[in-house]
């Protein structure tokens, strides 16, 4: 009876371990799966051509991904530049200034914003942001734009990644020991000076990690961007130009990809690029965050 129990326990333990390891192996599996599917592409095209050429002629077997890669980078950067001031200021306000009742009211709203599906953000972009850029922002600057452009994608993405950055930055701020703040306040510093010279400085790595997390979220976001960014294969030159980011390329062409030779490999290679970059971003930011946790003795 007892032996039976022990054996069952052992089996359970090993079974759970297997599940755990298998799901972790998914990271490796996705990499090799995508690599395997994109490898036929490497026989005719060098990696350098694929990444740095802007010749995109699938029918001729030319798959220069540069227009897509630069669109992705542009739209991500725009979104992060817009999101940083808003999310940092909000996080500081919610953790250092606002009273608890106000925070309890705002937090659920930020959670709701985080939970909205990307297609909803996309449709909001189509209803509001695109016409606004077309009718107000672009004419005010003397530029003509259809509204479906990098800026529209950047604005929509910025709103999407705000909750991510606010959430992580607030955690980091809350982890700063109260003693440290008290020491600064007792020296006669105002609350803002304490925030500026103690809180922000002390949590700088955490802030960077939060921004990188937001960045990687924006990098792979598909539908919302696809709906507002115009999808024209061209190197974008201004924020009012339409663009065609990598996720949009994959999502738009999955239907045709089996009818043109190597096209599917090119799309899988795009997915591989997204995967590798997001992976690197995530590993960096998580390692920073884990270090912070440990240095403060939590976790």
């Amino acid at each position: 009876m007892l032996l039976n129990k022990i054996i069952r326990e052992k089996i359970n333990s090993k079974l759970m371990l297997t599940f755990t390891i298998l799901s972790c192996l998914l990271v490796v599996l996705i990499f090799f799966g995508l690599y395997y599917k994109s490898s036929p592409l490497f026989t005719n095209n060098s990696i350098k051509d694929l990444l740095f050429s802007s010749e995109w002629f699938p029918l001729k077997g030319k798959f220069g991904l540069l227009p897509f890669i630069s669109s992705t980078i542009w739209v991500t950067l725009i979104s992060v530049i817009i999101a940083i001031p808003f999310s940092l200021l909000t996080a500081i306000y919610l953790t250092e200034y606002a009273d608890k009742r106000f925070v309890r009211m705002i937090n659920p709203l930020i959670d709701i914003l985080a939970g909205l599906p990307s297609v909803i953000f996309g449709i909001w972009g189509v209803i509001m942001i695109v016409p606004f850029i077309k009718n107000h922002i672009a004419p005010a600057l003397g530029i003509s734009s259809g509204g479906y452009c990098l800026l529209a994608g950047g604005i929509v993405l910025a709103v999407m990644i705000l909750p991510v950055i606010i959430h992580v930055v607030s955690e980091v701020f809350r982890a700063i020991p109260q003693d440290l703040k008290n020491a600064s306040l007792s020296l006669g510093a105002t609350q803002w000076q304490t925030i500026k010279y103690v809180v922000i400085r002390k949590s700088m790595p955490g802030i960077i990690a939060a921004i990188v997390l937001g960045l990687s979220r924006a990098f792979g976001e598909t539908l919302a961007v696809l709906m507002v960014v115009g999808n024209v294969v061209k190197m974008p030159h201004s924020v009012f130009d339409p663009a065609y980011p990598l996720p949009a390329l994959i999502a738009n062409n999955y239907g045709e990809m089996l009818s043109i030779p190597l096209y599917d490999s090119a799309l899988m290679f795009s997915a591989l690029i997204l995967f590798v970059i997001v992976l690197i971003f995530n590993v960096i930011s998580r390692i920073i965050l884990v270090r912070i946790e440990r240095s403060l003795g939590i976790g």
Binding site: S23, I30, L34, R217, G220, T222, A251, L279, F281
Partner: peptide, 22 residues
């Protein structure tokens, strides 16, 4: 394991889609 799940959490769903499709 926790790091792995943090990474899996960050992978864009389009990548899961492309992987699943292949």
């Amino acid at each position: 394991v926790r790091l792995c799940f943090d990474i899996l959490w960050g992978i864009p769903s389009i990548v899961y889609g492309a992987f699943g499709f292949s």
